[in-house]
Amino acid sequence: MEVRTIKVFTTVDNINLHTQVVDMSMTYGQQFGPTYLDGADVTKIKPHNSHEGKTFYVLPNDDTLRVEAFEYYHTTDPSFLGRYMSALNHTKKWKYPQVNGLTSIKWADNNCYLATALLTLQQIELKFNPPALQDAYYRARAGEAANFCALILAYCNKTVGELGDVRETMSYLFQHANLDSCKRVLNVVCKTCGQQQTTLKGVEAVMYMGTLSYEQFKKGVQIPCTCGKQATKYLVQQESPFVMMSAPPAQYELKHGTFTCASEYTGNYQCGHYKHITSKETLYCIDGALLTKSSEYKGPITDVFYKENSYTTTIK
């Protein structure tokens, strides 16, 4: 009895394709271990004539594949690729409408935090270190965002349907971005203890939790000093293409032309909904596939993004 075979390709990165001759009487799992086709788990399936010449994702289970996976995804987590594939199996079914010149995501599976993050990423200057993220990001900007969303979920250790947080998501993504040249110098002034300067680099240099107003941050924000008295913390120097200011959701007025974009969060910790506000020729609110415009805006804002380049204080 002759062994019926077909020729397929296996890959971990969709760049390096490895030619395989597979036995049609055995499952993919018996031949390769966990195997995925377009995100779908085909591990328990036997090869079919229609699979001839198709590319299958496999887990990096030998040295060659491990090197290829690390170079593309910059992670050695053995569960990463499987999590990416199972997320992709959902995100490829989502709709990605162009809204006001940006790629958004039609609401499904509690994905409003991903839509808000995706919209924000198209408006701030950011370059990702893992080629996987950078490639998928370019495709997302062009309207094909399924891979990018699935990668975000995998890097953030999230599953489809789980509630997510924009600030946490951005923080994970910033860790995989090139923020080497970003720098922030802060000064804390206390009447009792004097003053202390701190220099922050990388992710810490672009994120701040405690106030939404970048102007206020430049002037000074009140913080408790270690001595128990009130101290003032203010920005001395900022070198970065953008800054992200966050605070627990509270009524906040966004003035046209003073910011790049913002995240609105309605609801409580267990259950809520994100919308995205962007400042173009007027203010726009993007909620999944829905767009509304207004000249002014007041609502429960939790993150505001500002364009920056270089700032030095005039406070002496």
Rank of each mutant, 00 (worst) to 15 (best):
K95R: 09
S294K: 13
L179E: 04
Y297F: 09
T278G: 06
L88G: 05
Q98F: 15
V203M: 10
T313W: 08
V236Y: 09
Q270C: 11
S171H: 09
G220V: 01
I105R: 04
R184M: 03
I277F: 03
K92V: 11
M244W: 02
T76N: 09
N178S: 12
Q122W: 04
E281Q: 05
T260K: 04
I124Y: 01
K293S: 13
K298T: 09
T10I: 14
Q123E: 08
K293L: 10
E71W: 07
I6S: 07
V22R: 04
Q98Y: 06
A250W: 05
E281R: 03
Y28L: 12
K316E: 09
H48I: 15
I315L: 10
M170R: 01
Q30W: 11
K92D: 06
T116G: 06
D109G: 04
K275P: 00
D63T: 08
K218M: 05
K316R: 13
D77C: 13
E52C: 12
T76D: 14
S246N: 01
T76P: 12
N61A: 14
N268Y: 07
N89F: 12
L126M: 08
Q196W: 15
Y297N: 03
N187P: 01
G39R: 06
I105Q: 04
S86G: 09
K95V: 11
H90L: 14
P34L: 09
S295A: 14
H276G: 00
L81Q: 09
Y252K: 05
T5F: 14
D287A: 00
V42T: 11
S86P: 05
L126F: 11
N89Q: 06
G228T: 04
T10Y: 15
M245Y: 03
E168V: 11
L126D: 01
K201E: 14
T314N: 06
K316D: 10
H276I: 02
C193Y: 02
E52D: 11
D109H: 07
A115H: 02
P78E: 15
Y72W: 08
Y208C: 09
P97A: 09
A69S: 12
T169R: 03
T116A: 15
E296H: 14
T120C: 11
Y252I: 13
G164C: 02
W107L: 02
T103N: 04
G257D: 10
L17P: 06
E264Q: 05
T211L: 11
G161R: 06
I15T: 12
N89C: 14
T5W: 10
E168Q: 09
M24L: 13
S240F: 00
Y137S: 08
H74D: 07
Y269R: 15
D303Q: 00
R184S: 11
A40K: 14
L254A: 01
T19Q: 09
Y297W: 14
H276A: 02
F70Q: 15
G220I: 01
F242H: 00
N268W: 06
D63L: 11
F9M: 11
S240D: 00
A117V: 11
E264T: 05
S310W: 14
S50N: 13
Y72D: 10
A69Y: 08
C149R: 03
F32V: 07
C156A: 10
T11C: 08
A145R: 03
H90D: 08
Q98I: 12
A87Q: 06
T116M: 04
Y138L: 12
T314L: 13
V185R: 07
K127S: 13
N178D: 13
D13C: 06
E308T: 09
P78A: 10
L121W: 04
A262K: 00
G29Y: 12
W107A: 06
T312Q: 15
T226L: 09
F32P: 03
D23A: 11
D135L: 12
L118I: 09
N178L: 05
K218L: 05
K183V: 11
T226W: 07
T64D: 06
M245P: 01
Y84N: 01
Q251V: 11
Q175Y: 10
Y72E: 10
E52Q: 13
K233I: 15
D41L: 13
N147L: 06
Q122I: 03
T192D: 13
L290C: 15
T292D: 08
Q98E: 11
Y284V: 12
Y311F: 08
Q238T: 01
I301T: 01
L186H: 09
T314F: 15
I124K: 03
Q20A: 15
T302G: 00
